[in-house]
């Protein structure tokens, strides 16, 4: 009995001394962290995708709280609602950021584009690109191995087995930019959306001369400048045999889409008077 009593007393005494030491140590070395950082971080997605330009979600939260506002920083993944709640915590207003969605600047599906070369190496776009031009003769187009699909953490990309091209799910795309960094041919582009999330873009990156480009791929941009002339807003420029639509000037009217002789311009919405097959409308 006595043994038990002594044990309890000694251990209790050690415990008390320890508690006192820990109490003062904790006071002495206390790190004061703004509780809002935790609150902001808990609202973020937690995927640490790096789309905001910081190393992860917590780094973004820390920076947001340090600044005290959401000016010039934005989490592309979070919805407008989430950003509004973060702004509420920070006590500032949120400026509605332009929503971006990734688009593929290639429309050379494996049905349309001849595949004169065989490739038997690793099915990775980066490896295939390092080995040469790929299975089709186009040195600029999509290689179709799905490196972008592998790096998308939001399930917004999938490979279409029929066309061999990746497809962007606009509802899931958060514009984090992971696929853009991954594509060895820089074919994915973040495009700001217009009214009703409308987007119009040139789905080709070929800088080959028109005749060569057309021989390699029937849906290539041949630099004919028809779209440039059709655009009433001066949003389209043709350089290096390739057309490009500047998103800031584009009103997403779709006039260029029906004008393109090769169907190289795609729109996210149905175009009236378009003679091309519905495959061009995503």
């Amino acid at each position: 009995m006595q043994v038990v009593l002594y044990s309890i007393l000694i251990l209790g005494a050690i415990g008390c001394i320890g508690a006192v030491v820990l109490f003062f140590t904790a006071r002495r070395f206390e790190v004061k962290e703004d509780p809002r950082i935790d609150q902001v971080a808990s609202l973020l997605a937690g995927a640490n995708c790096g789309g905001c330009g910081f190393s992860g979600c917590r780094a973004f939260a820390t920076e947001a709280v340090r600044r005290g506002n959401l000016k010039d920083i934005n989490c592309p993944v979070s919805s407008a609602d989430t950003m509004a709640r973060i702004a509420l915590i920070l006590g500032c207003t949120v400026e509605v950021a332009q929503r971006n969605i990734a688009v593929l600047r290639c429309n050379g599906s494996c049905q349309a584009r001849p595949q004169p070369y065989a490739y038997d190496g690793v099915r990775s776009c980066a490896v295939m690109d390092a080995a040469g031009v790929g299975e089709s003769a186009c040195a600029f187009g999509c290689l179709g191995c799905g490196d972008c699909v592998e790096v998308c953490r939001f399930g917004a990309l999938s490979l279409d087995t029929a066309t061999g091209l990746p497809v962007v799910d606009p509802d899931r795309c958060t514009a984090c930019g992971a696929c853009i960094a991954e594509c060895p041919r820089h074919l994915l582009e973040l495009r700001p959306t217009g009214r009703n999330d409308r987007r119009v873009w040139v789905a080709c990156a070929s800088r080959d001369r028109g005749a060569v480009a057309r021989r390699i791929c029937p849906s290539a941009c041949i630099g004919c400048r028809k779209c440039e002339k059709a655009c009433r807003f001066g949003a389209i420029d043709v350089a290096d045999n390739l057309s490009y639509i500047t998103a800031a000037d584009c009103r997403a009217c779709g006039a260029c889409v029906s004008e393109c002789p090769t169907g190289a311009i795609l729109a996210s919405f149905p175009i009236r008077n378009q003679s091309n097959d519905p495959q061009h409308i995503q």
Partner: peptide, 13 residues
């Protein structure tokens, strides 16, 4: 295994 293919991919990146 295609060792060099993946090593080259990492090297290029």
């Amino acid at each position: 295994r295609p060792l060099l293919d993946y090593i080259r991919r990492a090297k290029n990146r």
